[in-house]
Amino acid sequence: MSTEFSRRRFLKNSTGLAAAALAAPVILKGSRVFAGEVLTVRDMGGAFYEGFKLGFYDSFTEATGVSIQVNTNEPDPIPQYKMAIDTDTKLFDVALMTPEHVLRLRQMGDQYMLPVNIEVKNPDDFTPNNFEPDFVGVAIYALAMAYRTDTVKEVPTSWADFWNTDGFKGRRGLWRSPVTTLEMALLADGVELDKLYPLDVDRAFASLDKIKSKIDIWWTSGAHATQLLKDGELDLMSSWSTRAQAAIDEGAPASILWNGGLYNIDGWTIAGNTDKADLARKFIEWCLDAERQAAYTPALACGPTNMKAYDFIPPEKAKLLPTAPDNIKGLTLLGAPFWAEHQDELTQRFEQWILS
C-alpha cells in the first residue's frame, strides 16, 4: 500500500481532538539508562497483548533492560483510569486509549494524563490525528461485520443485509454498547456513511427495535466476540476486526465485511500519577518505529499508524488490515467528539432499551 494513497484517504476525516503540537521534547540519551526498572503498561489483552509483545514489549526490554509488566483495560477503561488517579493508586504508567477516551478524560480535569513530550522527526510518515499533547497513536482497528462462510449462504454486503433476517438466515450478535451499534443501526436504515454524525439517536433506536428480537447474543468483550465466531455460536455479528481476524487465524471459516464499518485509533497515554514519566516517554517513542509496528501484525490485525510499516509487511498480511486500500474505502472514522459528549447518557438509555 502506498503511503500517499493512505494519507489522502485519512485526511478526509478528523477525530475532533484539539489540534496542537507536542510540547517541547524530553531528549533521552543512552539506551540502558533505565535498566532494571519496571514499566507497567495497560493494553486491551488478547491479540493486543500478543501483538504488542512481538512488536514493542520484548524488544524494548532487550534494548533497555526495562521489564514490561502488562495488565488489561476494562471494556470502558475510563472509570478505572479515573479511580487510579483520584486515589493515587499506581495501577499503570502507560495506558492504551482511543481519541474519545482522551476527550472524556480531558473533560474531567487536567490531572489524569501527563503531556507526552516526545520528539517526532518524521510526522509526515504517520496517519493524521495521530499526535496530541497527551496521546500518541500506534494502531488502527475497525468495527465491522463478521460472518461464518460455512453457514451464511448469501454473502452480506451491508448492514441492511444484516437487518434483513428473512433474506440472510443465521444467528446474530451485536455489541452490548451504544458505541458503533447505533451507527450500525443508522447505516441499516439508509444513512450514508459520511453523514452519520451527529447521530440521529431516535432513528437509531427505532432501527434497533426492528431487529432486537432477532439478536441471539449481545457480546460484551473482544474475547467474547472472538469465541462466538470461532465456535460458530453466531453466524453474523458485529466485531472488532482484530478479534474477528483472530478467530479466522485460529481456523474459523469466517470473513470480514469492511463496507459500512468504523475505524478508530489506539494510542498511548501517560498516567497523571506515574513517577516514571521519562521512562514512559522513551517507551512511547520506541513504539513509533515502522519496523516495530510492522512486527505486531502477525498476531494483531491492526493497521500501523506509521505508514512506512507497510514496507515491512507481506502483501498477503497487508490486505487483511483495516488501512489496506480496499478496506479503508468502506470505513469512516468513529465520531470521538460525539461519543465524548454523549456516551454516558446513551449507555444508560441503551441498557434500559436492552432490558425493556
Rank of each mutant, 00 (worst) to 15 (best):
N13G: 07
Y310G: 09
A95H: 08
R106C: 01
S207G: 08
I78C: 00
Q245K: 14
W240S: 11
D43P: 03
A277V: 00
W268N: 09
L105E: 00
W268F: 12
K282N: 00
T165P: 06
T3R: 07
P115Q: 09
R281Y: 02
T347P: 06
D275A: 01
P337L: 09
Y141L: 08
P314L: 01
V94G: 04
M1W: 01
E4M: 09
K53S: 12
G55V: 02
E50N: 15
W159S: 04
L196C: 10
K230S: 14
L22T: 05
N306P: 05
F5W: 00
D166V: 06
P77N: 00
V94D: 06
A294C: 07
D134W: 10
V155R: 11
V94K: 04
W163R: 09
N71I: 06
P315N: 11
L182T: 15
E192T: 15
K276L: 05
L228K: 01
M145I: 15
G260M: 15
H342M: 13
T297M: 07
H342Y: 14
D289A: 12
L186S: 05
R9T: 03
P198V: 04
A294Y: 06
I256T: 07
P315L: 11
F60A: 08
A146K: 08
G109N: 14
N164C: 00
L114T: 03
S238D: 11
Q348D: 12
F135S: 03
T61C: 12
R176Y: 08
M113K: 10
C287A: 09
A309P: 02
V102H: 03
T61I: 10
K214M: 11
E250D: 14
D200E: 13
S255D: 13
V136E: 11
W219H: 11
M108V: 05
E119D: 12
V179W: 03
A19E: 14
A95Y: 06
A223N: 15
E50H: 15
A223C: 10
A280K: 02
E192Q: 15
I118G: 07
D125N: 11
I68W: 00
M1L: 01
S239H: 11
K317A: 13
K29T: 13
P75T: 10
A185D: 01
M237V: 06
G267C: 10
A84P: 01
P322F: 02
L54R: 06
G330Q: 06
D194Y: 04
T127E: 04
F168M: 01
G232C: 12
E316Y: 00
I248E: 07
L187R: 03
G261H: 07
D311I: 09
A142R: 04
E74F: 00
W159I: 02
C302G: 06
A47Y: 05
K29G: 13
P133Q: 10
T98Y: 12
W219M: 05
L91E: 15
E192D: 15
V66S: 12
